[in-house]
Design a protein around this nucleic acid. Sequence first.
DNA 1: GCCATAAACGGACTATACCCCGTTTAGAGA
DNA 2: TCTCTAAACGGGGTATAGTCCGTTTATGGC
Lengths: 206, 206
Amino acid sequence: MPLGKPRPERADAARNRELLLANVREMLAAGGAGSVTMDALAERAQLGKGTVFRRFGTRAGIFRALLDADERSFQEQVLYGPPPLGPGASALDRMVAYGQARIAFLLDHHSVARAALDRNQPAPAGEATITRVHLRMLLGQAGLNLPDLDTLAVQLTGALEGPLLLYVVLPEPETPPSPAAGRPLAESWSVLVHRLLRAEPGTTPG
Amino acid sequence: MPLGKPRPERADAARNRELLLANVREMLAAGGAGSVTMDALAERAQLGKGTVFRRFGTRAGIFRALLDADERSFQEQVLYGPPPLGPGASALDRMVAYGQARIAFLLDHHSVARAALDRNQPAPAGEATITRVHLRMLLGQAGLNLPDLDTLAVQLTGALEGPLLLYVVLPEPETPPSPAAGRPLAESWSVLVHRLLRAEPGTTPG
DNA sequence: GCCATAAACGGACTATACCCCGTTTAGAGA
DNA sequence: TCTCTAAACGGGGTATAGTCCGTTTATGGC
């Protein structure tokens, strides 16, 4: 038995996962993230409560699972899509484009993204890390003459996502997500990145 | 009866508040933030649970109250202390100094500051806002030629505090707070601020 | 001192996340 | 098809945040 393959998920488990996620989406649409309780979800899906926890581990885990699919397709746009979000543009342009896209993404998924946060757990594992890793890479490509790009990437992640996840600069409950609500953030992000990546005065680029 | 004076806190209430906070500090020292439960606190202080909630409203409120005193003296350093943290230095220098001081503060109070966060509540009201407001003011003084300093201040708040509050770049449980642990963050903050406030090439200052 | 009243108090009650473990079942191999 | 085992399932149990409301008490005005 090859060690790298920890046995695929059993068919009934997979079926139930989908069933649960479908129910979560419905509950979400009907009553918002607050209405999704483990008990209610279990009952609605006609499953035991233990099953729900076995699938998702924690309440936040449900929302992480929900985010996952969209997050993956978002990531694909970033890695393989057309520039400037995808490869083929300058680091500067890509960073601005990434910020804009990320803000739009977090706006779209605002309620779920916040519900996916887990006090106790440091970083919502999959979710926030995409930003940190990608920004770190772009900083590297930008040819900055700076020592600690890792830390800078963490801080920029905070600048980009913090306003939407921590200091909630948005939206009134039940407000349908206005597409332009993130405009100021995107605008300001662009300024921040432009100034950060701007060449040192009196330095030859290279 | 003057409307602005909503009646001072009753003596017994004040006494109990102190009693509770003292007990919280002891529990904190003994078993960490996780060991501070409302029931345990109430019992330890020989008070009813209802009283604890009446005093602090919510679990996070306890930690906010704990933070409050230190936060106030921190704020005083910023408003009236010696430069560069206090007034009397350039906006740039003050912003760098503020970042350094804030990082040290959050490091010192890391466990309490995180416990003061309240899912549900957007921003930990008093706590995070100090940073936002102060950065906003300094940005104004810096004479930047930028349109939306409010949003920029929020993003910088995220850059400064996000790493410590959201993406926990620190410390292993039970690690005594190493004073140098925030060095990379402070260093990187300095770089970020320097580049942000750097004069536009070909622009006359003023 | 005495009274009236607003505030504080207490602790039972509810809602909910998360745990445990005995029972059931899918699915690989004989 | 039968067996065997690891995985999945169920739902009662626990811990804990937060609510409610009847009771007690501090305190300002008389």
